[in-house]
């Protein structure tokens, strides 16, 4: 495995090996000296051409804990804002000797494009491309679900996970549907019909328009952010009506199965898709998702960068 571009590239074995590695990495994050020499001398570039808080700092923390050198690059304040193309930017990074590029871009497929190009030779990690995929988010979500509901090992067979909200624009949902299904969980999408993508019938999921019917049966509920920056059409009448039908609030919290967890990839619109008391309740693992994100990203960086890269390498050797 040289790049991590899409969950579709993973097999159940390689996905499990990332989660198992992350499990070991989480011990490092919990120890007093949070530093390993594993990636010493490797250069990792955070190429964030779209805004991000937690993904960027999570990758940065992960790379630094493995002793890699991290160069942060964002569109604002760089030559990208003067109109430099992705090609020129990539060639600049190649010339500086980047071993890996972590890319976030507003265009779907940007990571794949960079990986297929001959502009740079390093690994490419997709940190979110448009409305396509966000594989490390799905991996950290699966890791969190496994830790709480799967005993920390094994796959997710027999679990039911609801993904609620703006499926149409959500790369997190697309990656999660693939990964959770790959690991054996059953995914239920809950959204107004206007926020479901065309062709969703062919996804390996159940679809519901009724959040109240789904909440009592699922083991985990993942609330998605209403992406106000992409709401350039009439998807729902107004935010209050959206909250009324698809928001997680105190009354709905009571109907959850015992042991069920509440997740959110962040950033949250408190009061829109989730109320503050749900986000801060004992059921919520939202803050822990951030912690797990660092472990999962350490695992991905380790598996992609630490070893010798062969022509057809496998994650498990």
């Amino acid at each position: 495995m040289k790049h991590l571009l899409s969950i579709a590239d993973l097999t159940p074995t390689s996905a499990m090996s990332i989660l198992d590695t992350a499990q070991e990495m989480s011990r490092v994050s919990a120890s007093s000296v949070k530093k390993l020499p594993t990636l010493r001398g490797r250069t990792i570039v955070n190429l964030f051409l779209e805004d991000s808080t937690r993904t960027r700092i999570s990758f940065e923390a992960a790379a630094k804990r493995l002793s890699a050198d991290v160069i942060n690059f964002s569109a604002k304040g760089s030559s990208v804002s003067k109109g430099e193309s992705l090609k020129d930017t990539a060639q600049t990074l190649q010339a500086m000797g980047a071993d890996a590029v972590i890319i976030r871009h507003s265009a779907s497929g940007a990571a794949q494009w960079l990986a297929d190009s001959e502009w740079m030779s390093g690994s490419v990690i997709n940190a979110g491309d448009g409305t396509h995929e966000h594989p490390t988010q799905a991996l950290l979500d699966a890791f969190t679900i496994r830790k709480h509901l799967g005993g920390g090992t094994g796959d997710l067979r027999g679990l039911q996970v609801a993904i609620v909200g703006d499926i149409l624009h959500s790369r997190v949902a697309r990656s999660n549907v693939q990964l959770l299904t790959l690991l054996g969980a059953q995914v239920i999408l809950v959204a107004p019909p206007t926020l479901l993508p065309v062709g969703v019938e062919s996804w390996p999921v159940q679809i519901s328009y009724d959040l109240d019917a789904v909440l009592p049966i699922v083991d985990a509920v993942m609330m998605l952010r209403v992406q106000l920056e992409r709401m350039n059409d009439f998807f729902f009448p107004n935010p209050r009506e959206y909250s009324h039908f698809f928001g997680l609030n105190r009354d709905r919290l009571r109907t959850l199965k015992s042991g069920a967890i509440i997740m959110h990839p962040g950033p949250m619109n408190r009061g829109l898709e989730i109320t503050a008391d749900c986000a801060d309740s004992a059921r919520s693992v939202i803050v822990e998702q951030v912690t797990n994100g660092v472990s999962v990203r350490m695992a991905v960086l380790y598996l992609l960068l630490a070893g010798l890269q062969e022509e057809e390498p496998s994650v498990n050797s």
């Binding site: 992609l304 630490a306 070893g307 010798l308 890269q309 390498p313 994650v315 050797s317």
Partner: peptide, 12 residues
Amino acid sequence: LRMQPPRALMPT
């Protein structure tokens, strides 16, 4: 580490 494909981690 750099001379071999990535190794699986064992528990500590």
